[in-house]
Design a protein around this nucleic acid. Structure first.
Lengths: 235, 235
DNA sequence: GCTATAATACTGTGATCACAAAATGCGCTA
DNA sequence: TAGCGCATTTTGTGATCACAGTATTATAGC
């Protein structure tokens, strides 16, 4: 499929993006998929060495991630992976419900049959992942499905805000998911897609938002891994 | 009031914040209050020279402001003050209505009598500014009043999202305000505060959100200064 | 053995340097 | 005079250096 000819090197289009951009993408992925432990501190030189670059692009990436809320910076400037408290988690999830509800309402009229077919694939992958308790696949499919819907809202600002919230929720979803025997309600995505297909975006949005909130409550009530405070005891 | 003794130098507490932090604050203010013309490009070296610093902290500030959405970065990396299109403006204002409504509902129960008195001062200043057609004072009082309310929501994430939206809307509010003979509805803030005092946060939120939306419509229908596209013809 | 102190390493911050790509301006030609 | 091509300058990007504040650790004293 790949490697048309002329060398056939496995280098992809040799992304001409600046280094700090690629670093940002890499760190973003790592954070959203929860590959960092909350409280872990990321030093400029440390990350630079890990990536084999100079400290400079790392500095740019980290400060950008801090600005995006993906990382936290304590008073002395050290950048750490945020420990999310119960309060913050609730806040983020409730805001997610509000904004993603809106995004779904806006998107529903613009979802065509082709899009629906594609979305159903994600929904299927989601159910598979749930059945297999595959957290990684679950989170990935979940993101593909949700943003696959939201992008049809044609609201870049809204999309950006939602991504921002996901970024804030990301570091712990992974951790928490480990504790959950049955994560989420697998049939929910199908209902959402059905409602969208029938043209009742309101109902779809309602289901989706409710799912987010019940997921939140499940997590809040089930687990014991919460940190006491955001900026304390970073051991 | 100030200058306890021991020198009495007019240096304020000699803010020990890092340079890039102060630069960020300065640029933030300048952007929100619309002191930059949309499309204007901000070069690292240029700003550095203007502030009398090295390019380094400027680089940090600019990239952070880009991450926050206050500035735009076109493909080649140049940072420019975003030209806001009608679509983006509508989107931002509608999202403002949604989020600030929520913030008001959350805040209302927590607003005490002392807070109310303080808020009434801002409302008064707002009315004064409107009467005098003083755009600068208007925007300042408006911000003081609104965020004076929202901070009682005790929702840092929500507050951050709202600030983000203000940042996106800022660059043009100022410009547009120049064209408007009568900006906004001066009695609105008073109604909001009255409702809050009576304990009906829902009603207050409703009034506030409606004010945002009517303001948006006023601006959309009145003015002619809109740019055609975001990333084009940056002359 | 414990604590206080001093030395060391670490880390964030800012400055300067170097390089490549893009934009700009100028001159030449048709 | 309009269009094209080249040279200069600007500008973003990355690297390295320097410095100050902080945390850590080792050591000496009680």
């Amino acid at each position: 499929m790949a490697a048309k000819a002329a060398g056939a090197l496995p280098v992809v289009p040799l992304s001409h993006e600046p280094l700090h951009e690629r670093l940002h993408a890499a760190l973003w992925e790592a954070i959203v998929s929860g590959q960092f432990v909350p409280g872990q501190k990321l030093t400029v030189r440390g990350v630079a060495e890990a990536f084999g670059t100079s400290p400079m692009p790392v500095r740019a990436s980290l400060s950008r991630l801090v600005a995006e809320g993906a990382l936290t910076q304590n008073p002395n400037g050290t950048v750490i992976v945020p420990k999310v408290t119960r309060d913050t988690f609730s806040e983020v999830m409730e805001l997610r419900a509000v904004l993603e509800k809106r995004a779904t309402i806006l998107a529903a009229p613009n979802v065509g049959q082709t899009d629906l077919a594609q979305l159903r694939e994600s929904a299927l992958a989601l159910r598979e992942a749930t059945k297999n308790d595959d957290i990684i696949a679950y989170l990935q499919a979940n993101r593909a499905l949700k943003f696959g819907i939201y992008e049809h809202a044609h609201s870049p600002v809204l999309l950006e805000l939602i991504q921002n919230l996901w970024l804030k929720a990301g570091p712990m979803l992974r951790r928490l998911a480990n504790d959950l025997p049955n994560m989420g309600h697998p049939e929910c995505p199908d209902h959402v897609l059905q409602y969208i297909e029938r043209g009742s975006g309101e109902a779809a949005a309602e289901v989706l938002a409710a799912d987010i909130l019940t997921g939140m409550k499940d997590i809040l009530s089930s687990t014991t891994v919460w940190e006491q405070a955001d900026g304390e005891a970073r051991g």
